[in-house]
Design a protein around this nucleic acid. Structure first.
Lengths: 157, 157
DNA sequence: TTTTCATTTCGGAATCATTCCAGTTTAGTA
DNA sequence: TACTAAACTGGAATGATTCCGAAATGAAAA
């Protein structure tokens, strides 16, 4: 499971015209070192501050937003819980424990059956969530559809 | 794609000791008729009120919570957007359009490759989200782990 | 090195979906 | 018809995230 490195992240930021600030460095450090924790904004803030850096929560959010826009990390949203971010961009399934909430990355190759996952990862699957994001037929077929500001809509009755 | 019926839903509620109130009926009606829209709390409120029912937003949330706890619907959470609920509980993938936001249910049987989905559903996949929820090894192995109130945690470094 | 300025950061206020709560109403039973 | 636990209401509270104007600063150019 290769993970993006500190240097790759910083390099990409620099190369795309972002300034390398102490705050961004601190945040990137946390992401690289604690990426497998799927940290949320507050944990990142805390950790970044431990490393004797001056950072604000606004900055953490801003930076996570930039990184995510740049496709360098991904955001996970949870019900009733602080969102988390995901540093590992390889295709995988997040195994979220309903008791302790631990999130484990499960890499897909071998098989896709819940039973197999249970067996291999010692995880009992009771519920699944799968979403593919992309572009629907309308939006790829219609000529230049003015998409009213990314409002979620749905097939009309 | 069979969908749960009004009668099934009401039957299950009654049989589990829930009172059948006009508010619950109105909400169930919306879910049954507009389930494929993946409606959010506000849409449900609006629709329920159209049918000349007196309902409050609190009640909509409460009822959705109950239905979801009873396993009769599912909740979908979205970034920056009102959550939606899902009435179709058959295993499927939600295809969420990044432009118009339309959500389409894609039923899994045939295959699982993004390319195939693109071809069959006219949907171009750029991003995937998959999560399995359940119980991790610790929580099934350890003897009666006092799980500190369902706080999300994670593997420690 | 200094100057310069667009970018970044800060922190406090604003937002907004969702939850909570205390008081009122009501479904369903006897 | 009366009774009571369950349900409903609306307004306040919550809490993560976003917004915003002002202050600070990276890094390119002089």
């Amino acid at each position: 499971m290769k993970m993006i490195t500190r240097e790759e992240l910083i390099g990409k930021l620099k190369e795309r015209g972002f300034k390398i600030t102490p705050q961004r460095l601190a945040i990137v450090n946390v992401l690289v070192k604690r990426g497998h924790l799927h940290p949320g904004a507050n944990l990142i803030l805390e950790e970044a501050r431990k490393k004797t850096e001056r950072v604000s929560l606004s900055t953490v959010y801003a930076t996570l937003g930039e990184l995510s826009q740049q496709g360098l990390i991904k955001n996970l949203e949870f019900d009733q819980l602080e969102n988390r971010c995901e540093v590992n961009l390889e295709e995988h399934i997040n195994l979220v424990c309903k008791l302790c909430g631990k999130i484990t990355d499960y890499h897909i190759p071998p098989s896709l059956e819940p039973k197999d996952i249970a067996r291999e990862a010692g995880f009992i699957v009771t519920d699944a969530r799968m979403e593919y994001y992309g572009y629907c037929r309308n939006c790829t077929t219609l000529p230049k559809r003015a998409h009213a500001g990314r409002q979620i809509q749905d097939e009309n009755a």
